[in-house]
Design a protein around this nucleic acid. Structure first.
Lengths: 228, 228
DNA sequence: CGCTGACAGATCGTATACAATCTGAGTAGA
DNA sequence: TCTACTCAGATTGTATACGATCTGTCAGCG
């Protein structure tokens, strides 16, 4: 009576592991080992990896296997720019139109974030992204939902790779303010808050010369790879 | 010296067949038959189908195999709404910033469309979508490029399913006007033209009670499936 | 006459076998 | 000492075999 096939199970498990940053960017994902761990054959694992590759959470190189993607700084910025555009669409659609039930759902989601943050739980990052996924869901636009999910997932990866380990960058207040503005129904205010929020996430995440941030080989070699 | 693996070949071939509407929406895609046609095993075909499923060009049902998706009218509208948002981003980024080479490329693309249209070639629909893909490419944003490609491909499918077979709905003039506005550099004018263009495509495609448009079973039964 | 259940054919889901490819260690030669 | 080559071990790429599931047909029963 499992709702999902075995491929689905492996797929989602790996995605969670990536989004929650249990699997580091760049980590190798050998088919054999994963298959053994989940008790399935390589066929299943390969299909799950292929799906993750379609979501651009893992990269597959021919004859070299799969590994967790390690987006460059440039890709990270591009990601957030597009995400800002789509989140802008979301707030424009939602502003002043939230039902009581939706408001309740958003508030409990933020409460969950707060708790995870206070307890310094590993899933804080996932939860604080989940807030945006919930917002996207409420637009009832399958496309918006779909694309924003992917962008949010990849964002988590990016922040892990280029971000600081600070527990101080807390989204809870900004999420609260956003909910209030959505209820109030001032579109421009909503857009401003969302844009500011995302910009804050990005700069908090990227700008701080992270204690943890190991620049990727690609970035490192950028200087040295200049022609002639 | 093929650039892509065999999976890639089958994947792209099937996609072209779908986008060019050689494969009707709803068409079954049996793994055996396709494998035999391309001279590969089911393993390869299945992976190609899985990729197409990730792009939402085919739907895979457990134990029922794959078939070309047949988006509902509602999904079609959603698709175009999101596409309009992203195309808006594209023109905002490109307006007044086109290089001479880019202008040349766009013009020759439109010329190609025109030719295909005059000759009533099957690939006209693909080419007229390609114009938008080229624009997206020029933004140099991998994300924008990626998402817009998917949206354009799916658009072709939607227009086939719900559209009229008219050869009169020609995009060439609107594409020309758009290029001119992008060169001129008037952002608001660009946005207006793009929005009008897409709205025109949608209404030309969907509104006209198409001679060919068979409403899907789902739509048909909507009235009859009301509770109690 | 209509319904139920069994069966055959087709199609899909998964595991596994074998070939191809890559990686790194070790060795021979300059 | 350094370079180039070879080869074993590990890992992936692909085909295929076998079991599971679905669909449609047809006989048996009410």
């Amino acid at each position: 009576m499992v709702q999902g096939s075995r491929v689905e199970i492996v797929h989602q498990a790996l995605r969670r592991a990536i989004v929650e940053q249990a699997l580091e960017p760049g980590a190798k994902l050998p088919e054999d080992a994963i298959g053994e761990r989940f008790g399935v054959s390589r066929t299943i694992v390969r299909r799950a990896l292929e799906r993750l590759a379609a979501e651009e959470l893992v990269a597959m190189q021919p004859n070299r296997g799969a590994s967790v993607v390690a987006p460059t700084l440039e890709e990270a910025r591009d990601l957030f720019e597009i995400r800002m555009e789509l989140e802008d669409v979301v707030v424009r659609r939602l502003c002043g139109r939230l039902t009581a039930a939706q408001i309740e759902r958003l508030k409990s989601a933020v409460a969950g974030e707060q708790e995870a943050h206070l307890q310094r739980r590993r899933d804080y990052i996932r939860l604080s992204g989940e807030f945006h996924v919930i917002l996207a869901d409420m637009t009832e636009s399958p496309m918006l939902r779909r694309y924003l999910r992917q962008l949010v997932w990849r964002s988590a990866l990016v922040l892990r790779l280029h971000g600081r380990p600070d527990w101080e960058d807390c989204n809870v207040h900004e999420h609260h303010a956003l909910i209030a503005a959505l209820i109030a129904g001032d579109v421009e205010q909503c857009r401003r808050l969302m844009a500011a929020h995302l910009r804050a996430v990005l700069t908090r995440g990227l700008k701080g010369g992270g204690a943890r941030s190991e620049p990727s080989l690609w970035d490192i070699l950028a200087v040295y790879a200049a022609p002639t």
